[in-house]
Nucleic acid binder design. Structure first.
Lengths: 264, 264
DNA sequence: CGTAGTGTTGAATTGAATCAAGTGTCGTGG
DNA sequence: CCACGACACTTGATTCAATTCAACACTACG
């Protein structure tokens, strides 16, 4: 695996396995340590505190509950649990999935650090999905009734939360387009590019990263089978656009990946 | 066409073409007349004013702009226009669609009376889709900055708007599941049932209604071709589950339609 | 009345699913 | 530390649902 600056969002694992090179120190270490406040969290530029001033951040800080870390497979909540909170990913990653009556599951989303989970429960007061950790992860829990109350006092928090929800809506509509008209190869390329820019957002490499999810998870998310995802990975590798070794992905030719999509 | 209480959301057209029977008077007449205030609008139980008291509704009323009616094909806004307002459908119906660089369009949503359009622009400050009227329609425009300001003063308005956005998110995730795992027949059945309950919400018949959109629009929305949509309609009719005559749909066996979906 | 847009139906094609048979990887407990 | 078992992943052959291509009918509107 070498001493490269390969990206992973599970920072403790990263430190354990991969020597941190000087160039990687742009990432301030953010352990699962639950005592890190919003003020000192390295994600405060992406997460809820954005656009808040110091004293406002302290008010937000006061309502955030920093839970114990989640192990791989642990559930944040389950489908039809009573809605109580939204969650900000601090480290690691999560997947949301919907289980139909017949027991068949479909992944509806993946969540990386700085992203907000659970907004699907706001309207019906119960979660529409189950959400579980894909790896060792940590979370900030934000009780929604308190977030509402605080938004009443802090206009910029209200504005920002409207914005976060609007972003989720825009993102979901993009996926609608993707699922309704893209081929398997286009979906996969789009997925990899999407991950790439989300990793970049948290100062990890946009060209080399570890997939926290299985091929099966990706398939469920993109509306494809495991076999198809595997085949597309192999074929993109043969074309020299990516390099795949198990969960380790390297994007070798981002422009060509983009071209795959815009050929639609 | 007869004197039945067949549903259509275009009330002026309905009055023009179809004699209103006594049983249809549950629908208060809501013409495109732009002077109707939120207080007297028949949709105020579904739309933004829900959960507001009299004086609060008047405050909301003051910021709503009631535009002239839209003709079929008229655009509410176009992709990448500057985001300024969200819109509540008063009568008629709209479709949103995303145009890719290569000119291919995909329908991302249909909007019926009482539903809110334009929330995809909140985060990026520009609309991600174009939205046009499917028939003669009217709209209430709500300038977003004023909605934010008012939400700051009226906790129940803030709460309700969070709820509307959360609902949109939950709905979009359902469509994600639908597109990623349902067959053409399941998608179509689900679409018809969805329309049915949305018509019921505005006190129109849940079993007989006119489709405001073309087969092509439905196909783009469901990720199918026109031909497939047409074939599924024909086959559902042959099975006796629905009756189709041009844009006129009657759901004959709702339970069997539900069974199609839950067989997944 | 003509024409553009909308819808239907059939036949051929194809992209991805399914079925099947493997190999590779990881975590656990002996 | 190694062996075991459970998952995760890959690759090939076959099938099938939906698309594509094509021809035509209907409708609605200026």
């Amino acid at each position: 695996m070498g001493n490269s600056d390969i990206g992973t969002v599970s920072l403790d694992e990263m430190e354990a396995k991969i020597p941190v090179r000087p160039s990687a120190t742009v990432l301030k270490i953010c352990p699962h340590n639950p005592t890190v406040s919003c003020t000192s969290c390295r994600l405060n530029e992406l997460c809820l505190p954005i656009a808040l001033n110091k004293s406002e951040i302290h008010q937000l800080d006061a309502i955030v509950e920093r839970n114990r870390p989640f192990k791989k497979g642990d559930h944040l909540y389950r489908q039809s649990d009573e809605f109580k909170s939204v969650y900000a990913v601090r480290s690691g990653s999560f997947k949301s999935y919907f289980l139909s009556d017949s027991g068949q599951g479909r992944v509806t989303g993946f969540y990386l650090p700085g992203e907000i989970i659970g907004m699907d429960g706001i309207a019906s007061r119960s979660y529409a999905n189950s959400t579980s950790a894909l790896e060792h992860s940590s979370i900030c829990e934000i009780p929604f009734s308190q977030l509402e109350k605080l938004s009443q006092e802090l206009p910029s928090l209200q504005h920002h939360f409207f914005s976060i929800m609007g972003n989720e809506i825009a993102k979901d509509q993009q996926i609608h387009t993707l699922l309704s008209s893209y081929t398997a190869e286009e979906r996969t390329a789009s997925f990899l590019l999407g991950l790439s820019s989300r990793y970049a957002r948290v100062s990890l490499s946009p060209t080399r990263f570890l997939l926290p999810m299985t091929r099966g998870d990706i398939g469920e998310y993109l509306g494809l089978t495991v076999e198809t995802v595997s085949r597309i990975f192999t074929s993109l590798q043969k074309k020299g656009l990516i390099s795949v070794k198990n969960r380790e992905i390297e994007l070798l030719d981002i422009q060509s990946l983009r071209d795959i999509i815009s050929s639609t």
